[in-house]
């Protein structure tokens, strides 16, 4: 399929992560974190989601470029990935 899922998925996690991180920055020390055991969970988890989104997005972009760079040599056999269990 020609759409690499990692690109939209990475974007979504980037945006949601950014929203949560910014919210977390503005609500430092707020009483709303009493319920989450005193942790600023928006800030912490927002950063985690940002990181995950970025990795996904970059992976998607690089594999997209690789596919565009080398024209498929008349084979649609996806066995080419020899060994890396993830396919692409």
């Amino acid at each position: 399929m020609n759409l690499d899922l990692r690109i939209p998925m990475g974007l979504m996690f980037l945006i949601v992560g950014a929203i949560m991180t910014i919210l977390g920055l503005f609500t430092r020390g707020s009483v709303i974190y009493e319920r989450s055991a005193g942790m600023n969970i928006n800030l912490i988890w927002g950063v985690v989601m940002l990181a995950f989104g970025l990795i996904m997005f970059l992976l998607g972009r690089t594999s997209d470029k690789r596919v565009a760079a080398e024209p498929v040599e008349g084979t649609n056999r996806p066995l080419g990935g020899r060994g890396h269990g993830m396919g692409h």
Binding site: I19, L23, G24, T27, I32, R35, A37, I41, W45
Partner: peptide, 11 residues
């Protein structure tokens, strides 16, 4: 509802 403040609650 018990553990999540707004923001992550949406998630």
């Amino acid at each position: 509802l018990h553990y999540f403040p707004t923001g992550i609650l949406g998630l």
